[in-house]
Nucleic acid binder design. Structure first.
Lengths: 138, 138
DNA sequence: ACTACGACCTCTAGCGGCTAGAGGTTCAAG
DNA sequence: CTTGAACCTCTAGCCGCTAGAGGTCGTAGT
């Protein structure tokens, strides 16, 4: 297997400039090159980039991925640390979900302020007055 | 009411450089100045900045806020458009929540891959192989 | 009236995580 | 051997701020 950057891009779903960017920031190693300086990738890089892409999709920051990749190369005692990183990330995700759920409720209340039933649109005021639907009193 | 930028910052919870940034990108109008070029704000700006802050907290992008502010000054026929913006935003939020929920399940499966029960930590492989917990077969 | 000092000013550059474009070179199919 | 798609490097831009340098202003206390 001897993939050009475009092949690697197609196989991983990571855009070409992003692959080069990952190399630049040290997330992917510098690959072999042809005589004309074109990058050629093997299965290791394919695997690693798939890992990176999936971790990014899961919302891991580049720094966290760097940690995970570092720990992965030291498989003995690192397991607990990998768990810790994942747990920390899980806590963040749960927090995000909670915040977004509150937001969703608020937005639903906003669109429920149906303009057919009231004379004036209140969404602007609702936003200005910190998001409470105020059709009637209050 | 004649607020210096620091007062405005304290009252809205928006940081001073951010206020100046909002002015720079045209989200806030250029305020009155003292003879020594210091900004002085009145109640209109306070109200507008509170609106902006709340909308940002709700996850509206600056462009959307610009739209909302523009529509707010044309209150008659704009109501439906404001609803549309809000509904679009709500759909995006729901989408994010769905994605994050899937992510949470995946992360929970990952941390459930308890390293006391297995000989090798699988988190790395789980991430690499697109997130399926593969303790046993597969 | 003067001084001290905190709050303000402008300007530039940086952050993360890419993305886009210019302008030039290489590879591989026909 | 030619074409043209794919590659190369380099620089700059995106969003939404944030930080710092280096200098000026306003006001409280004396």
């Amino acid at each position: 297997m001897n993939l050009a950057i475009g092949d690697l891009s197609r196989r991983t779903g990571v855009k070409i400039p992003t692959i080069r960017y990952y190399e630049q920031i040290g997330l992917l190693p510098s690959p072999a090159r042809t005589e004309g300086q074109q990058r050629r990738y093997g299965p290791d890089e394919l695997h690693r980039l798939n890992f990176i892409r999936h971790a990014r999709e899961l919302g891991f920051e580049v720094d966290a991925i760097r940690q995970l990749l570092g720990l992965a190369s030291d498989p003995g005692r690192s397991c607990g640390e990998v768990h810790d990183i994942t747990k920390t990330h899980l806590a963040e995700v749960n927090h995000k979900i909670a915040r977004l759920s509150a937001l969703r409720d608020e937005l639903e209340a906003m669109v429920a302020c149906d303009n057919r039933r009231i004379s004036e649109c209140r969404i602007i005021e609702v936003l200005a007055d910190h998001g409470e639907c105020q059709h009637r009193q209050h």
